[in-house]
C-alpha cells in the first residue's frame, strides 16, 4: 500500500496509457458505430463547427475576391476571347447535347441511377492534419446513414462513410492514401486499381497491355469494395509506363473538386 501511495501518479498514468493503447487496438480496424457519449459530443460540437466552417468559407471567399481585383482587367480580356471561342463552338455544342441525350438513353443511365435513394448532407469540419482526406458531415444513423455508404456529388465520387454516430458521420474521401477501390475505364473497359495520392489527385494501376490514355474517364466498377457502380471517379491526365514493370501507373484528376466541398449526397 505504501508503494502505491508513493507511486500514485505513475500508476494512474500507466493505467490511462494501458486503456488508451487498448482503445487504439480495438478501434484500429475502424468502427461501424460510435458510442452514445461520442455521438453526443460530435453533435454538440458539430453545430458550432458548422457556424465556424461557413464563416471561414465566407471570409476566405471575400479575401479571394479582394486578391483577384488587381487581375480583373486581364481576366476580363481573357474572358472576352473565351466568349468569342465559345460562340463559335455553340453549334458543335448543340449537336453534342443531342448526341449526349441519345447516348444517355442508350446506356439507360437515368434508369440505373434512379434506383438509389439519396440523403443530402453538409460538411461540418475537416481533419486538422489531413484536410479533406477525412471530414465530418451532419447526418448520422438517425437519418439512415450507415457504414460504407457511398458519398457523391452530381459531378462524381467523393468517398465513403467510415464511422457513424447518431447525428454525424465521418467520411473517408477517395484522395486518402487508405482509400482503395476498383474503377473501370469507360472507353477501353480496362480495370483500374485506384488509391489516394497527395495534392488532391488519385493514383491508378492498370495492366501493362491496357490501352488507357490521357483524357479517358474512369468510373467505379462496382465489383469490389463498397462503392456503387458507374459513378464517375475522374479523368486520366497522365499515363506512366516504367520499363520492367507489369503495370502502368495512371494519374487521375478527381471529377469532384474536393477542396471546395460543402454539400454532399449519400447513397442509401
Amino acid at each position: 500500500m505504501k508503494w502505491f501511495g508513493e507511486h500514485k501518479f505513475g500508476v494512474l498514468i500507466g493505467l490511462i496509457v494501458g486503456v488508451l493503447v487498448l482503445g487504439i487496438g480495438l478501434t484500429s480496424g475502424g468502427r461501424v458505430h460510435t458510442t452514445a457519449p461520442e455521438g453526443l459530443i460530435s453533435s454538440g460540437v458539430g453545430s458550432i463547427s458548422r457556424i465556424f466552417y461557413y464563416s471561414s468559407q465566407y471570409v476566405n471567399n471575400f479575401y479571394e475576391f479582394i486578391s483577384d481585383l488587381s487581375t480583373l482587367k486581364s481576366r476580363n480580356e481573357e474572358l472576352e476571347d473565351l466568349l468569342i471561342e465559345y460562340k463559335s463552338n455553340l453549334t458543335d455544342y448543340e449537336k453534342m447535347v443531342q448526341e449526349n441525350k441519345e447516348l444517355k438513353s442508350l446506356l439507360e443511365f437515368k434508369e440505373e441511377n434512379a434506383q438509389y435513394e439519396y440523403v443530402s448532407a453538409s460538411v461540418l469540419s475537416i481533419d486538422p492534419d489531413l484536410g479533406f482526406s477525412v471530414f465530418v458531415i451532419n447526418r448520422g444513423s438517425n437519418d439512415g446513414v450507415g457504414n460504407n455508404m457511398t458519398v457523391i456529388l452530381k459531378e462524381g465520387l467523393v468517398g465513403r462513410v467510415v464511422e457513424v454516430s447518431s447525428s454525424t458521420s465521418k467520411v473517408l474521401s477517395i484522395i486518402d492514401r487508405n482509400s482503395m477501390f476498383n474503377g473501370v475505364c469507360v472507353r477501353t473497359r480496362d480495370y483500374v486499381r485506384i488509391t489516394g495520392d497527395d495534392n488532391y489527385m488519385l493514383k491508378g494501376y492498370v495492366d501493362s497491355e491496357a490501352e488507357i490514355q490521357a483524357g479517358d474517364i474512369i468510373t467505379t466498377s462496382g465489383l469490389t469494395g463498397s462503392f456503387k457502380k458507374d459513378i464517375v471517379v475522374g479523368e486520366v491526365i497522365e499515363v506512366l509506363t516504367s520499363q520492367g514493370k507489369m503495370e502502368k501507373e495512371v494519374v487521375i484528376e478527381p471529377a469532384v473538386e474536393l477542396e471546395k466541398l460543402n454539400n454532399v449526397l449519400i447513397i442509401k
Binding site: I13, V19, V21, G23, I41, S42, K170
Partner: peptide
C-alpha cells in the same frame, strides 16, 4: 472523438 479514425492516438500523444 471529433476527427480521429482510431480512438486513443491523440489522447495518448497529448497526455505523454
Amino acid at each position: 472523438i471529433l476527427y480521429g479514425r482510431v480512438f486513443g492516438v491523440y489522447a495518448l500523444g497529448y497526455t505523454v
